[in-house]
Amino acid sequence: MNGAWKIILLGVVMAILGLFALGLENDPRNIPSPLVNRPASDFTAPALNGGQPVTLSALRGKWVLVNFWGSWCVSCVAEHPYLMELAQKTKSRPDFVMIGVDFRDTPAAARNFLARHGNPGYPHAMDPEQKIAIDWGVYGAPESYLVDPGGTIRMKHTGPLFPGWFEARALPLMEGGKTP
């Protein structure tokens, strides 16, 4: 009886320590998005360059990286060089495109941003009242979603994309599970 209690107590203590250890790895700011593995909500919005409106569903059949940003966002400046690099590197890929959603912003400020930090060349949808951003469960900028060819959100990345993100995070998904 006594031995059994000791084992139970040890088990409980180990379980609590285990939970603590798991908690150390957890970033409380990183709230998992319930949108992952759900169909991406479609949008059509005016393009920053004034041309054809940007429509997500028009890109079906390709993996789409949707990058939410704003010229007011400081981390976006840090992220920008990688977006430039990624756009350059994936230009020849037939299965991958990038679009930006510039929210809570004015076209003038956004153009200014691109003039100063470089223009990666992919289209940007304008979302001045952040309707698209709220529809996509965006907390802040930058946040990025990877949408698969079937139009399902497969991944969310909160914060700036890091150099090597495409190879480390996106490619395994793109090569592993095609369309679910």
């Binding site: 709230i31 998992p32 998005s33 319930p34 949108l35 759900r38 709220i134 529809d135 996509w136 469960g137 907390y139």
Partner: peptide
């Protein structure tokens, strides 16, 4: 909102 932002 729950579908987009979760329980939070």
């Amino acid at each position: 909102f729950h579908q987009r932002y979760g329980d939070y």
